[in-house]
């Protein structure tokens, strides 16, 4: 029986919790609602073992490049050395050439898997299906990751993302440099990511467009822009805000417990059984 649904209704963290508690084995496929790609996470007995984004089962070399453990020249050298083009053979070649240790590879795969899941946590909606007993291709290197820590960190990131989303609800606005006379713009140190954003600031580029061009996800762009705002360096273009309706809680009435005896309940039970 496949579990199906949408992340709008059952969040990824909730799904991970389910997979963890029920010690499920299989593949969770998610298709982003906004055309933001798709992902496939593989689990064995409740542990995350592999992740693939956008229909591609990411190669070990690509993972290592993405997390900065290898550069393209090293990848070319490793591919040349490996007899067979499988992840296991590539991993062996990395170890034999002394570029990476086995621990580096395991840690690298682990970091890649975690980053992939953290990225998925920012998806507000997406159709998902969990297919039991589906496994990644045999030659992929899998690293079992306990989900309980991931769920806690995921929950923290979701809260951070929600806070950032409250502070920056609309990405379809341009950024502008601060016009405040009293802004203290001395001794500000910017990160590489912040510099990249700065270079795209003009009245025509919205934050979403900048994120798309730089291939930065919503969580990252909100975090970077928030950092720039906190530093007093940039401001948002003005957009009309829709007021959020405030709901008022109501007090519950006092309980009205049933006042019947055990005999009455047993009579009802007998009758139901005899229906």
């Amino acid at each position: 029986m496949a579990l199906k649904g949408n992340l709008r209704d059952v969040g990824l963290n909730q799904l991970l919790n389910l997979i963890h508690l029920a010690r499920k084995t299989g593949a969770l496929s998610v298709q982003n609602d906004n055309g933001g790609g798709n992902a496939r996470l593989y689990f064995r007995e409740g542990k995350l073992i592999y992740a693939a984004l956008d229909g591609q089962e990411t190669r070990l070399t690509d993972m290592m490049v993405k997390i900065g453990k290898l550069n393209p020249d090293q990848v070319a050298a490793i591919r040349q050395r490996a007899q067979v083009d499988t992840d296991k053979a590539l991993g062996l070649a990395m170890i034999q050439t002394g570029i990476l240790t086995q621990a580096d590879i395991v840690q690298g795969v682990k970091n890649y898997l975690l980053e992939t899941v953290y990225q998925l946590l920012t998806w507000a909606g997406g159709v998902f299906i969990f297919e039991p007993n589906h496994a990644p291709a045999e030659e992929r290197i899998t690293v079992p990751i306990n989900l309980d820590h991931l769920i806690i960190e995921g929950g923290r990131r979701v809260r951070e993302f929600e806070k950032l989303r409250e502070e920056l609800p609309d990405l379809d606005v341009p950024l502008k440099f601060t016009e405040r006379q009293d802004a203290n713009l001395r001794n500000i140190n910017l990160s590489v990511d912040q510099w990249k954003i700065i270079s795209f600031i003009n009245s025509r580029n919205t934050i979403r467009q900048i994120a798309s061009y730089l291939k930065v996800d919503e969580f990252q762009i909100r975090r970077i822009v928030n950092g720039l705002q906190q530093a007093g360096l940039v401001e948002l273009g003005t957009t009309p805000r829709v007021p959020v309706p405030v709901t008022v809680g109501t007090a519950y009435p006092s309980p009205s417990a049933p006042n019947v005896g055990r005999g009455v309940l047993l009579r009802v039970m007998d009758r139901l059984r005899g229906l």
């Binding site: 029986m1 496949a2 579990l3 199906k4 059952v10 909730q14 919790n17 389910l18 508690l21 029920a22």
Partner: peptide
């Protein structure tokens, strides 16, 4: 397409 009761409990 029904979710099993145990999964529903967690969800």
């Amino acid at each position: 397409d029904a979710w099993p009761p145990d999964d529903l409990r967690i969800a």
